[in-house]
Computed example of a mutant assay.
Amino acid sequence: MFAIVRTGGKQYRVAAGDKIVVDRMDGEAGARITLGDVLFTSTGESGLTVAAEIVAQAKADKVIVFKKKRRHNYRRRNGHRQQHTILQIVSVGAAEEKKAAPKKAAKPKAEKADAAPVEASAE
């Protein structure tokens, strides 16, 4: 069974036992997380989640950004290392736990005054 999940603005095809590299997510190595934004499953069921375990928080290879304007003595060299999280997919298809909506407490109704409205006198 596989699923298509969305995280970090990207979509991933995952199955139990897969390792995927996603944009940085909060959590320490060994922590369990659930990916609730499941777009599609191979069985066609809806309302499922994907359970994953964080393997590591890492950085990607360095990307060199080099800017140059010829004949203007303008050269800029910069580097960037994107942070990412490595996830191990534990299970696909766990039922999503829906929290019950909190019940609203009934507001006490204001007592209506039986007296006639007071007229303002102009003096």
Rank of each mutant, 00 (worst) to 15 (best):
F40Q: 15
A60W: 08
K67S: 00
D26W: 10
T7G: 05
G47I: 00
K67W: 00
Q11K: 14
G9D: 03
G30R: 12
K99F: 03
G9K: 11
A116H: 12
N73P: 02
S121W: 09
D37S: 13
M25K: 06
K99V: 09
R71W: 01
D37N: 10
V92K: 08
A3N: 09
S42R: 11
A52K: 02
I64E: 07
A16C: 11
L87K: 10
E97M: 06
D114S: 13
M25C: 12
R70E: 10
G27M: 03
D26N: 12
A16I: 07
V90S: 08
G93H: 09
Q82S: 02
M1W: 11
V90N: 07
A110D: 10
E45W: 03
D26S: 14
A31V: 13
K62T: 10
V90E: 08
T7L: 12
Y74R: 14
H80Y: 05
V65R: 10
E53S: 12
A31Y: 07
A94Y: 01
Y74I: 14
M1G: 13
G9L: 10
Q83V: 04
Q83S: 14
E119D: 13
H80F: 02
K68E: 13
T43N: 15
R32A: 15
I86W: 00
A56F: 03
N78F: 10
L87Q: 08
D23V: 11
R70M: 11
A113N: 15
E119T: 04
E97P: 04
L39P: 05
R76K: 10
A120H: 06
T41P: 04
I4L: 15
I86A: 01
A105G: 06
A101N: 01
K112A: 09
S42I: 10
I33P: 11
E119H: 05
R75W: 00
S91L: 00
A94D: 07
L48M: 12
T43H: 04
